[in-house]
């Protein structure tokens, strides 16, 4: 049942008239669900702001949460979802923060003398309005959490592919775990960027931590090597364990003239020998 503007006005008046009582019991209700993770003063501040938001929306003639008069309230609810999601509260706990307003208002109505049929009918409309607000909060919470998770996954991706400067003129990237396309892309970009930043002529790609090298992984590595070459850098692939070497051969993958070494130490030795001879030639 949608809220008429007269009903909305009556509730706006009720919220204003019983401001302190509503805020107090609303805050109580929320503190029960968040149990000490937010201070009472903090909750009190939030509920009194929300109470004003509801009041303004209703007195402005909002009969639905999508109405223009409720724009400010929607912004407040979004903000609530945002902070709750970042503070690690559940979707349930976040939605309850809004739902609890119904209980608080009901207490006020029940306490008054005028709990007649008309008031109860009004209350149903108001209740539906609050439900919409709580569901809006719920949806917003879910969307924000998804964004947070995607951000974190991206950060993890960055963290799990460190490119290190191993020696003067030598950078190395140790690959660990499954090298899917998304990670391979990150690895390639970071390696190429580090080559530019450090002006290194050599890069070592260490695959000791990669459990299986299939055609997809091999293709990603080969593309990285070719791109590095175009930038004037030479790549060495290290950490090829016996079982990986045999599998690569059976699969038919050829690394062509790319230098490959059993261990990272071997690869570094190889590079130092190359740079050493260059120096002597001079």
């Amino acid at each position: 049942m949608a809220l008429s503007s007269e009903q909305g006005n009556r509730f706006a008046d009720l919220l204003k008239g019983h401001e302190d009582t509503v805020i107090a019991s609303w805050t109580d209700e929320i503190s029960r669900t968040v149990r000490g993770r937010l201070s009472r003063a903090e909750l009190q501040r939030q509920t009194s702001e929300l109470q004003k938001g509801f009041q303004t929306a209703l007195s402005g003639g909002a009969s639905d949460l999508n109405d223009d008069a409720a724009a400010e309230l929607r912004a407040q609810l979004t903000e609530l979802s945002n902070t709750r999601a970042r503070q690690g509260f559940t979707a349930n706990e976040t939605a309850v923060s809004v739902f609890a307003l119904k209980e608080a208002v009901f207490q006020v109505i029940k306490g008054g003398e005028d709990a007649d049929t008309a008031t109860l009918r009004d209350y149903i409309g108001f209740s539906a309005f609050v439900d919409r607000a709580a569901l809006f909060t719920f949806d917003t919470y879910v969307r924000i959490r998804e964004e947070l998770i995607a951000d974190q996954a991206e950060q993890l991706l960055e963290l799990s592919t460190p490119v290190v400067k191993l020696w003067e003129g030598v950078v190395a990237v140790p690959l660990v775990g499954t090298l899917d396309s998304a990670r391979a892309q990150v690895v390639m970009e970071r390696l190429l960027q580090t080559l530019v930043d450090t002006g290194s002529p050599y890069a070592i790609i260490d695959i000791t931590g990669v459990p299986a090298v299939d055609t997809q992984v091999a293709q990603h590595i080969l593309k990285t090597v070719v791109a590095a070459r175009l930038m004037g850098a030479d790549c060495i692939i290290s950490g090829i364990r016996p079982q990986i070497a045999q599998t690569i051969v059976a699969l038919g993958i050829e690394f062509g003239d790319i230098a490959t070494k059993a261990s990272l130490a071997d690869a570094l030795r190889h590079v130092l020998r190359l740079t050493g001879t260059k120096r002597q030639e001079r």
């Binding site: 299986a212 299939d214 997809q216 079982q243 990986i244 045999q246 599998t247 059976a250 699969l251």
Partner: peptide, 11 residues
Amino acid sequence: VDQTKIVTAAS
């Protein structure tokens, strides 16, 4: 070696 081979084939 055979573990790695069958895993790679499966992949």
